[in-house]
């Protein structure tokens, strides 16, 4: 008997997903937005693994591996962009200042 039923997993994943979503929407610091995105990705991955365990299918963990690859790429590129913006002399990591193409709003 598994410690969790699939319903519990769905409940937990939904909560995690909402917390991550709230983080993306609330935080203006881009580092925090990336971390919240990672929480959301983890919630999705958890559902896949839970479904895999529920129907005893390895596909769930295959999807987990792919999500892991996606998260790695997303984090690497996102952090590279943050570093790049920071090195270009942007004063803060505020995502809202990045609203202009070819340059940014220093206000």
């Amino acid at each position: 008997m598994p410690a969790f039923s699939f319903n519990d997993i769905l409940l937990l994943a939904t909560t995690l997903f909402s917390v991550g979503l709230a983080g993306v929407l609330v935080r203006r610091n881009m580092v925090f937005m990336l971390m919240s995105l990672d929480i959301m990705l983890n919630a999705a991955a958890l559902v896949f693994v839970g479904a895999g365990a529920r129907w005893h299918d390895a596909t769930g963990q295959v999807m987990f591996v792919l999500i892991l690859a996606l998260a790695a790429v997303e984090t690497a590129v996102g952090l590279a962009i943050i570093l790049c913006l920071h090195a270009h002399g942007r004063p803060t990591l505020d995502a809202d200042t990045g609203n202009l193409l070819r340059g940014w709003n220093h206000g």
Partner: peptide
Amino acid sequence: DNGRVRWYAAWIA
């Protein structure tokens, strides 16, 4: 389309 990422995320949500 004000270019603010958080607003776009909010629209998606």
